[in-house]
């Protein structure tokens, strides 16, 4: 565990490594759905549509001016900030991404466990600029949608235009999902990603299963981290 107060920029912000030093059982936001029998282990099964959770990733919210943050993010993460609203930039192997959320707000997703070190490096780099970095890794999770019917399943669920005209690769939007909201991303040609909030995760899973029943939808998640 690091020091409680990180003296980075003359200001005083408490940073916090949320991960225990020993291996301790953790539950992703889809845990309760799994307990209810709604989520299967990842089985490599290929139906018309499949939803797979990528649990325990590092999620950071960056707030600040685009120019300031872009320089730091490029230096520390090797990805530039998306140049346009609704932009999504993903690194070569698809495991790290930066997404525009609002004019002074970006979502960074990195492999689980990297987020604390990245936050510290970014804080170091940004010095006394005005910015904020917030770790939200426990509050949301990423699920991937793939298969021939993924687009139709999304049409049943979100109001945004999910055709490639409306949501080309490299675009990400916040949109209405049934009676809640999600972040919807198009990182590549093969599928879509949803970032869903922990407390709404079970509702989203039940909705997807209901809407995807006619396609034989399965929701999968690794059985443990």
């Amino acid at each position: 565990m690091s020091e409680a107060h990180f003296e980075a920029n003359g200001g005083n912000v408490a940073v916090f490594d949320t991960h225990p030093s020993e291996v301790i059982a953790a539950e992703s936001p889809l845990h309760w759905s799994r307990e209810r029998g709604l989520v299967d282990d990842v089985a490599g099964h290929d139906g018309d549509v499949k939803v797979v959770e990528r649990p325990f990733l590092g999620h950071l919210i960056l707030r600040g001016g685009a120019i300031t943050l872009d320089e730091a993010v490029r230096a520390e993460l090797g990805i530039s900030l998306p140049g346009k609203p609704l932009g999504l930039n993903v690194d070569a192997d698809g495991s790290r991404s930066v997404q525009w959320l609002s004019p002074d707000e970006w979502l960074v997703i990195v492999p689980g466990g990297e987020e604390f070190e990245l936050e510290n490096r970014l804080r170091e780099h940004l010095g006394d600029a005005h910015f904020a970095i917030v770790n939200v890794s426990g509050g949301q999770t990423l699920v991937e949608l793939s298969g021939d019917k993924a687009r139709e399943l999304l049409m049943k669920s979100v109001t945004y235009d999910v055709h490639s005209h409306g949501l080309p690769v490299g675009k990400a939007v916040g949109t209405v999902f049934a009676k809640t909201s999600v972040v919807l991303r198009r990182p590549n040609e093969t599928g879509f990603e949803l970032v869903i909030r922990r407390s709404f995760a079970d509702y989203c899973v039940r909705w997807l299963l209901d809407a995807g029943r006619e396609y034989g939808l399965r929701v999968e998640s690794p059985s443990s981290r």
Partner: peptide, 15 residues
């Protein structure tokens, strides 16, 4: 549509 039964309104759960 699907907004009925247990999907009538979201239920939020804690961890």
């Amino acid at each position: 549509g699907r907004h009925c039964g247990e999907l009538f309104d979201p239920e939020r759960y804690t961890a």
